[in-house]
Design a protein around this nucleic acid. Structure first.
Lengths: 212, 212
DNA sequence: CGTCTATTTGAATGTACTCAAAAGCGGTGG
DNA sequence: CCACCGCTTTTGAGTACATTCAAATAGACG
């Protein structure tokens, strides 16, 4: 909540306040940047603080930004015709989140994005991203790689959904994302796995009994 | 099967034989190319003909190429521990197919890719793709967009799987890909939808009776 | 025409869901 | 500090959706 603190004092956030280290490290995993490029990139970001339950993007609006999570946790989800929430993705520290469809097509978002916990994010607007592509073409590569990885992860998840039981999917989830269960309510995890909260509870009961 | 014909005669396929129009049109939907760039791109492609049931990529091997389908139909799938096949994607005319994970990581493929019908494809090797990125950076953009679209489609499918019944998923599928049911056996569609062939048959029976 | 594979049909079963109610768990105020 | 509130999780009984297994039909190809 560092950024929030400076916001309250009504100071312009500076680089040091923004905790740019994390995002630069994230980018430099895939491309190398010199000082000027780093500074330019950082200058395009807008820090933002979200309180728990704050809806950052409402389905129906155009998603104008990609958000990089510095701290906290967000979720993206759809609401079906019966009013049920289905979580497409979580994003915690060091992850990006957006309604990809809306962001790239400039059409109304299908997803709603909401803070699960108080969160600090850095926003990169679509316009700034295009600017970035023009001035520092390396970023085409960075975001291509980012999306490639997202696609692969998504495909894995799809295969998982097609081939595994709810129990196996849950076990796989807590193994792959051990940090998430601690910061996300259980019924959200059920939604992500595509099962009801009641059933997830029963699975957990069964597993606990099995272990004992 | 034009390419196959020339292969039999042992002639080097030329541009005109390769039906490059389709792939160039596919590329030029997103980036514009001059003659030299087009020719260079085409020079990096390798035409290949696959008979029905031919396994083009075996899980465990490294996926060295992306395949663009000129004609025919392919599927990518995994086999689970119980020996059941789960189809991740189909590819017909004007689509790309690869084991994305293996292709970008150079690690053993998770997916097997197989021709469902006799097919003609154009292969772009990983090395040639890197070459292409170097010489014609616009292609970074093209493949980024391609993957963005693939990611969005995948996310949609995931949401669909989380939120809809098998019947709704089937209806959605035949609406979205009306051309596929005619060239793909029904049990493959069941596998894609994540249900058993028997159950898909029952759904179809129910729908037919409903309509009448 | 016979063989092989794909699809359909039916009965029994299992996995996951619905609905309802109870128990747990922070917070907040008296 | 305890009592109460709202929200999440657990538990249980009954139900629905989808699977398994087995057998019958239908289609495709030599």
């Amino acid at each position: 909540m560092v950024i929030a603190f400076f916001k309250i004092l009504n100071l312009e956030p500076t680089e040091s306040m923004m905790n740019t280290e994390l995002i630069l490290k994230n980018v430099c995993k895939h491309i190398s940047l010199d000082k000027v490029e780093k500074d330019f990139f950082i200058s395009l970001l807008e820090p933002k603080t979200l309180r728990r339950k704050k809806i950052y993007l409402q389905a129906g609006e155009v998603c104008r930004n990609s958000a990089f999570v510095i701290d906290g946790a967000l979720k993206s989800y759809t609401i079906d015709k019966e009013g049920k929430e289905h979580i497409l993705s979580f994003a915690t520290k060091d992850w990006w989140i957006a309604d990809m469809y809306s962001y790239i097509s400039r059409k109304p978002a299908i997803l709603t994005i909401e803070a699960i916990a108080d969160s600090d994010v850095l926003l990169l607007s679509y316009e700034n991203q295009q600017l970035l592509y023009d001035k520092v073409p390396k970023f085409e590569r960075f975001f291509r790689i980012l999306i490639e990885n997202a696609l692969v992860a998504n495909q894995q998840r799809l295969i998982d959904n097609l081939s595994s039981s709810a129990e196996d999917r849950y076990l796989h989830f807590i193994k792959k994302y051990p940090s998430i269960p601690s910061c996300v309510p259980q019924h959200n995890i059920a939604s992500y796995l595509g099962i009801t909260p009641e059933f997830l509870s029963k699975i957990r009961g069964r597993l606990a009994r099995k272990k004992a």
